[in-house]
Design a protein around this nucleic acid. Structure first.
Lengths: 175, 175
DNA sequence: AGCCTGACTATGGTCAAAGCTAGACAGGTA
DNA sequence: TACCTGTCTAGCTTTGACCATAGTCAGGCT
């Protein structure tokens, strides 16, 4: 598989600071936010159903058809996403049919927006056909990008990043 | 599971525009950038190894120890990540030991930064212990956030987003 | 040479994800 | 009433992710 082999400096990607310099002073055990996220969205079916939700898909038949998932898997995963509070069922009624449910993103589901955009961005850089669905800014029509900023508003690169043990780790440990 | 049940307006999350309004005019089949990304980073082990890489971990023993993965899984996944061009092996020599390899992020691997940050951000919003490792801006010490912007530089919310079929979909189809 | 250690590899077992097929079930239509 | 259709459930199977254990193998050490 072809890929970039940049002959770059032998420096750490991210600098470790504080107590985290000694990595054995601390264990990730149960603290990792990414692992926690993966428990909810770590399956292929969950991610592509959410993708469809961000593309505006809401109804069971559309979601199954456009994701290519089987009824059974889609139903199971949608149920889990509802239970986990990422989607919510909303009744609707098509004339001549009985009341059914649409699946719409909750606030928690919408807050996955940066994750979805970041993954689309990254996926777009991989080899394979370009194109497909694209998300753009309604205001100006420009495609979306996921950016990393700090809370103070600065753009941040990997090289400008430091890793530390969160200051409230001790406080939280009591809980 | 407790979660927000916002009583919000009955509008689509994302507006579909262009040919994409008729969703059956087009099929996702093989075009989805997220599915392509998931083929490379869609496993728990891949994500948490990359997490460790962004935390500054490089050596086999450290990566296995801090991720809690077994040797076998770590070795297999690292091999895959190297083959896929997200990591690269770099020789090092500890005094008294033979030459070994560190695993360092390639440019392609580093470009996952927004994905990792976005997932950490989102995971932090879930219930469970807060704390753990935190990434901060070296300049000002503020924690990192993943933001969504358009190519023109505007901040974009879900509501300001439109989904369309990418204009170069046809061009790419020839390939 | 023979030993030791750290980085893999090979094997077997468990479990979850996802596909397929077949139903169940509600609530409309004829 | 009987029937149809779209949503959802229930089995069964395959695949792959992960773990545990036990090897292999390279290369420095004594």
């Amino acid at each position: 598989m072809a890929h970039t082999q940049e002959p770059e400096a032998d420096r750490p990607v991210v600098t470790r600071i504080g107590r985290f310099v000694d990595r054995d002073a601390w264990t990730a055990e149960g603290w990792c936010k990414i692992e926690r996220a993966l428990e909810l969205i770590g399956t292929r079916s969950a991610m592509i159903l959410l993708r469809e939700a961000f593309y505006g898909g809401r109804r069971f038949d559309e979601l199954t058809r456009r994701t290519g998932l089987s009824d059974a898997v889609a139903a199971k995963r949608l149920k889990q996403l509802v239970d986990d509070g990422l989607l919510r069922q909303q009744p609707y009624r098509e004339p001549g049919s009985r009341t059914r449910h649409e699946y719409v993103l909750t606030e928690r589901g919408r807050s996955l927006f940066p994750v979805v955009v970041a993954m689309m961005n990254w996926g777009a850089t991989l080899e394979g056909p370009t194109g497909g669905v694209e998300l753009v800014h309604a205001g100006c029509g420009e495609p979306l990008l996921a950016a990393v900023r700090c809370a103070a508003g600065h753009d941040v690169t990997v090289e400008d990043t430091e890793a530390q043990i969160s200051r409230d780790a001790k406080r939280a440990r009591r809980a």
